[in-house]
Amino acid sequence: MINVENVSKSFTLHNQGAARIPVMHGASFQVAPGECVALVGVSGAGKSTLMRMLYGNYLAQSGRIQIGEVDVASAAPREILQLRRYSLGYVSQFLRVVPRVSTVDVVAEPLLATGWDRSDALARAEILLTRLNVPERLWSLSPTTFSGGEQQRVNIARGFAYDYPALLLDEPTASLDATNRAVVLEMIAAAKARGAAIVGIFHDDAARAQVCDREIDVTAFTPKAVA
């Protein structure tokens, strides 16, 4: 499902003396449907950079990032948008939403984007929010003022609303209590069971051991000059 081949990345900071910072070189790995793979490596090794390249948020300099039928490294914006709508989900560490949009709408949005009926989408959003223990009195409010843990659960509900064949998880259990952490791990296991290919960053060692099939040490892709 996910096939990364010889991907490299460097940042050129034109306005800071054109400093060129190589951050990744020769990254290659594959993730099969139903498999969960953890990216590991010290802070600064490039885990998040790699994740962002998989999502098309950062531009890969060279190589291929094949997700389903699309090569994210060379696809047009329109193809990446289509991929994100139907095939590639992303649970980021931080919730980035429009002010004034209610929590239940934030969660239902990915479903509406794929053409779900509004009432079905809202019903599914409510099931997910209930499962993640987000109090019902908060559903009609915008999540912008919620606590860190609540925002993260809204983020997870949103990321799992639609059954994407490929899923990227950036620290999905970071600020959760034990109960909610267990719920999220169950949801990840269920996504694997339905055949989703998952790439995740987990600083929570026990969580990683529980849901991930193998680890990829990103340090192996760090250019020598930086390491």
Partner: peptide, 22 residues
């Protein structure tokens, strides 16, 4: 420069776009 909105804003390539974003 052209591209996906979040990509251009989060990983701008051109000198001018980098200046604009920063």
């Amino acid at each position: 420069e052209t591209g996906l909105t979040d990509q251009v804003l989060d990983d701008p390539q051109h000198r001018y776009t980098q200046l604009l974003v920063s």
